[in-house]
Design a protein around this nucleic acid. Sequence first.
DNA 1: GAGACGTGGGA
DNA 2: TTCCCAAGTCT
Length: 375
Amino acid sequence: MAPADQTRKTASPFGDIATRLLGWYDVHHRELPWRITPQEHARGARPDPYCIWLSEVMLQQTTVEAVKAYFRVFVEKWPDVGALAAAQTEDVMKAWAGLGYYSRARNLKACADLVARRGGRFPDTEAGLRELPGIGAYTSAAIMAIAFDRPAAVVDGNVERVISRLFSITTPLSEAKAEIRAHVERIVPGTRPGDFAQAMMDLGATICTPRRPRCMLCPLREDCSAVVSGDPEHFPVRLPKADKPLRRGAAFVAVRGDGAILLRKRAEKGLLGGMTEVPTTAWTARIDGATTQAAAPFPGNWKPAGRIAHVFTHFALELDVFLAHTNGETPAGHFWSLPSDISGEALPTVMKKAIEAAIPGATKKPSPHSAKGAP
DNA sequence: GAGACGTGGGA
DNA sequence: TTCCCAAGTCT
């Protein structure tokens, strides 16, 4: 039986916060594909560091709901770090397509290569983990806590919100990081630090939500100064953000006689780095006939096929889509993707939108009924 | 250290 | 519709 006081620093007046939180987590924890339950953990089960690492990278700035399906596909395709290291980067990019922040996929593969080369074991220190590509302050702490059950200060957006409310931190978020981290370092218990980290994030995701927090259900409401002051939703305090500029451009969907679509690969770095695209103009270009014709992959009868809008992190984009049919040659640096292959290409969402505008249904996964050779 | 870097869902 | 934002990292 665990002792009543499970805190690492018994002199801390915050120790009971961890105890209350863990008691709540035992009952209300979320069940997620990469997780073991606190009950399994208590029986000695330990999560697979590979799965924790993979899920944490996928979860960077990404919702749990979006990650679930991708996580299952990745674990099915590549069950361990050795398998991922043996994979082709191109296949990893294809599997990541649609999840966003594509440098994560490239770093994921690079990290797998490094770990596999060192014998397939992830480092079990924060410093060791931090050296790996794609692993920063948050992810290294999360892996330490969740995979290795070590008392690391795991600070993500959820934790920032919970802590800033618990202590009514009025410093704007970008400047309050150190203050928040100091609070977490004091609160984190020596016992069950991994469950504590996950409990903080579950609390932030399900109770201490950005809007309309469910304070009546919160195990920490008696500890929470924002509840006392009456306006938890006011926290965390954020600086106003700059508004997004609008960029415009044109995209060219070229279709061959057999239905194949002309594609090319983007540069490895920068926006949508390493992903596949249909030919486009630059995304600041004016939309006029001369500019558009000059940017087309080949001269031809380009017909307007609609306009798509897409919002990136730091700008909005409007693309005028043009469609042409051709039996011509393959422009340098381009390739053709057959209808049966197009859904599997490393196409970011904005490019699927452009293709869909010109050829509705083209990027959808073939159904079992229409798929050639299906049972 | 500020800006680059995706996407989809909820209110 | 529009805004906000979700388990951040890199340069």
